[in-house]
């Protein structure tokens, strides 16, 4: 290896890391600022220009946030709701995607298109019928009411189908010849191979549900059944924003998602790189 190329390589690498560092700072700054703000006392929140480094450690904000909204209960509710939706979507999407990817049946293309077309109906336009239905079967103020409308999703099915389609057809044929049933093929071969897509879907559906606001607000009347995003609005005063208290609430609410992310992260990276190193 000649010297100039070596140098150029190093320079390229330095530049790359520089860019990554800048990107990381841009990504992390809002989070960092939120955490720092959550420890400021009311008199220091409005300091101008804002301080980059924490100047105090005022934990009263957390006590205030917990007093204004039962956040622990909300986090638990959101966790149950989001996990429920996530697991239901994984199961439903895998099963539906399997049919669309592997099973031959009449009108498959048409059914799939109709399936996909539901993605074009905005959720907002179906919220009232959904509400009346859930209300009608008395599922308001229950976890089931929070979870049920989101158990099946066209997007999830599409995502998993694409992943299944990329599996070699021969694999399915070989397994079938060996007497492997469809369900067994799905569970023992297709699902493990589609782990990256399933992982992505899991994180996506969990966060999507965790961030819901309007549906939980509509369907719950009891405070004990409410979810985190409503909790955050409970901290937001229409006339007097207490930023430090809001940020304390946001930090508390963020913890479970961060934990999930760190747990899933290793799985995701393993899944993403499992079949990627061929050359």
């Amino acid at each position: 290896m000649s010297k100039p190329t070596h140098l150029r390589k190093t320079a390229g690498r330095v530049l790359l890391y520089l860019l990554l560092t800048v990107a990381a700072i841009i990504m992390i700054y809002p989070l960092y600022n939120g955490v720092v703000t959550s420890f400021l006392s009311p008199s220091n929140v409005d300091t101008y220009p804002p301080k980059l480094f924490p100047i105090e450690f005022y934990v009263q904000n957390y006590a205030d946030a917990l007093q204004q909204a039962p956040l622990v209960r909300f986090v638990m509710n959101s966790f149950i709701q989001s996990s429920g939706v996530m697991m239901a979507q994984l199961v439903m999407a895998s099963l539906a995607a399997f049919a669309f990817a592997f099973l031959p049946f009449k009108g498959k293309q048409l059914v799939f298109l109709v399936f996909l077309s539901t993605m074009m109906i905005p959720w907002e336009s179906t919220i009232i019928p959904n509400y009346l239905f859930i209300q009608g079967i008395q599922w308001d103020d229950t976890y089931m009411g929070l979870i049920a409308p989101f158990m099946a999703s066209a997007f999830a099915t599409f995502l998993i189908r694409q992943s299944f389609m990329s599996l070699p057809r021969d694999l399915y044929d070989a397994a079938t010849i060996d007497g492997c049933s469809n369900l067994r093929y799905l569970v023992t071969i297709a699902v493990p191979l589609a782990r990256p897509a399933l992982g992505t879907l899991a994180v996506y559906s969990f966060l999507q549900t965790y961030n819901q606001y309007l549906w939980p607000l509509l369907i719950t009347n009891k405070v004990e059944m409410r979810t985190v995003q409503i909790g955050i609005t409970m901290l937001r005063d229409a006339e007097r924003e207490m930023w430090a208290v809001i940020m304390a609430g946001v930090v508390l609410v963020m913890i479970p998602t961060l934990v999930l992310f760190f747990i899933a992260n290793r799985q995701l990276i393993r899944g993403l790189t499992a079949g990627a190193l061929k050359g």
Binding site: V91, D141, M144
Partner: peptide, 10 residues
């Protein structure tokens, strides 16, 4: 998991 999701909270 599917069934756990179906259990009504209360």
């Amino acid at each position: 998991a599917l069934f756990a999701g179906m259990l009504p909270g209360c």
